[in-house]
Design a protein around this nucleic acid. Sequence first.
DNA 1: AATGAATGAGCCTTCATTCAT
DNA 2: GATGAATGAAGGCTCATTCAT
Lengths: 197, 197, 197, 197
Amino acid sequence: MAVSREDKYERILDAAIEAFAEVGYHSCQVSKIARIAGVADGTIYLYFKNKEDILIRLFTERMGDFIQLIRSKMESCQDTRSRLRAIVHTHLTHMENNRALATVTQVELRQPNSSLYSAIAVPLREYFRLVEEVIEEGIKQNEIIPSLNVRVARQMVFGTIDRATTDWIFARSERSLSKETDCMLKLFSGALGLPKE
Amino acid sequence: MAVSREDKYERILDAAIEAFAEVGYHSCQVSKIARIAGVADGTIYLYFKNKEDILIRLFTERMGDFIQLIRSKMESCQDTRSRLRAIVHTHLTHMENNRALATVTQVELRQPNSSLYSAIAVPLREYFRLVEEVIEEGIKQNEIIPSLNVRVARQMVFGTIDRATTDWIFARSERSLSKETDCMLKLFSGALGLPKE
Amino acid sequence: MAVSREDKYERILDAAIEAFAEVGYHSCQVSKIARIAGVADGTIYLYFKNKEDILIRLFTERMGDFIQLIRSKMESCQDTRSRLRAIVHTHLTHMENNRALATVTQVELRQPNSSLYSAIAVPLREYFRLVEEVIEEGIKQNEIIPSLNVRVARQMVFGTIDRATTDWIFARSERSLSKETDCMLKLFSGALGLPKE
Amino acid sequence: MAVSREDKYERILDAAIEAFAEVGYHSCQVSKIARIAGVADGTIYLYFKNKEDILIRLFTERMGDFIQLIRSKMESCQDTRSRLRAIVHTHLTHMENNRALATVTQVELRQPNSSLYSAIAVPLREYFRLVEEVIEEGIKQNEIIPSLNVRVARQMVFGTIDRATTDWIFARSERSLSKETDCMLKLFSGALGLPKE
DNA sequence: AATGAATGAGCCTTCATTCAT
DNA sequence: GATGAATGAAGGCTCATTCAT
């Protein structure tokens, strides 16, 4: 069976994730992506405008999926604690299951002054917004102490998860990342003043 | 008086911080650093092995200074809360006062598989160790609840500060970063179970 | 009725003339010709060996037709003056009516060291020969002064027409090209010593 | 003695003329020019913006010099015949002595829709203007019949010279080009109605 | 030590051509 | 015959690094 057009696009994207994770975006040659994807160099340009376009689409598409995943996991949650748990656990599990993507995300997410930044900014801000909504709702429901700064609280939640992920990537050990969900949640509970379980 | 060897070295390093902050390490040409530093391209190679060496030395030296600064600020602290406050406040203030350095630090800190990573790892781990020591001491002194995972707690402290800094850099607004010290400390107090003030 | 093989061949040739005229042979992509002709890229290679072959056939066929046209116009001419007039007028009118072809002809006629040159050389030399025959016949009939160099005289006739055509193409104005027939003929009459009308 | 900056610029220009003449602008690799000039590929880009810039500067500078040469040769001329002779003879001699330049000029002078065309247009128009001035002055001095179209007359003068040059280039024979000055002048005399010598 | 012109390896991208359908 | 997705060779240009002055 021939490889369909859809498949090829995805294969190039997957190859790019693997390649970027291994050597970083800037040190990665387009021909390396092509080799991993099993296509010719020129084929890449049938699906992507240029090298940067690969990175941009990678972020927007995969992060879009990721945020959808988190939203769906949160639907059945009744209280703030379980919503936070859904975020933390889904995030850590997803990174654990997609280590290469995690590596790229952690590393390349922060380029200054590039068209890349503005492309990334949209899904990232959407994620931030989602976390802040959970916090705001928690305050409204009297589950979270009202006096805290919502943005800083969100920075704590995301920053902690993000840092744990980065540490896990660089540690290269086999230790589980998602197992840290409970530790993290306990800290967040105390910080936000969530009621005892 | 002629510019001494020391001065020229520092001037190149400062120029590099400015240049890297503006366009990013990979997009920055050595000649740009030379122009900002007011020296010839070739002169850079009298002081640095190559382009990457500039970045490595930049991190190790400036982060070394930074850690020294934090240690000195912490010397007079008697309890865990004030030690944490010293860390948070010194970190945020330092980044606020050295925005270009902050930009480089936040952006370029995470290159995979490069000799850069191992160079950065040393001072970064020292900083992590410092935070973890404060937490461990807090547990020993019964100021922090003992059941938490020290590493995850450190990831929270550093991750939150780090994320707040990144947000502040990309926000490009004039809002103060160091003013968030108290918000952050309140969260950490709750998370770690610090006694009421 | 389906488009016949003949038709498709001609359509590609016409498309090539249009495309080459617009952007020049070297800057013209084969896919552009295909798009204008309304065929797939690959189809072109069913009718032409390669890109250069399109240009070669374009010249040989269209110039062959052009020379036939001039010959037929000259058949009814009784004297040198009317023969020259036929050449000049037919040439200018033809270029005026086929501006795109004229553009390609004027521009691409002169590539050094290519298989293109030798392909063009044949019809071009035939045209030159035709002009020189008119001159030689004029000398034999005592209509043209015998002391002139036939080749140089032909260079004058062709060069003048050719230059006027090039100027007209680049002028992009709406001024008529064929209207210059009489001016040109008057110059040629004086140069060649044709008898008064 | 070191090669001065000026020299290197000229050497690259000369190398480009030779290389373009041999294989044509489009088929000529920048590395070929570099090899002939005896410099590294990158050095070219210290002196020229890009490949097209080489061609543009080549035309503007060398044609500027050429027009100056013709002007200087014409200064001592007292009548129209000697002015025309100066133009024809200087043009033919110059092309004969600079065959490679002539080849490039004849071939690459006519690219449509490129920034090249507008760059060439200026010196070329200046040359046309010079020829037309000679004709206009001749009419004013009653040396040339007044009824002719000046533009077409100029097209004849330039077109004939240009065509003779092209023929000479493609002939590749050792026959002299400049020796045709007199043939050509005799034709022009008759065409323009110049008084007998 | 300082310079900056010169180097040349390296890479992204294009596009003529092919070939499985 | 017709298609157009896929190919991959080729080349213009950049820029970190060198070295003669």
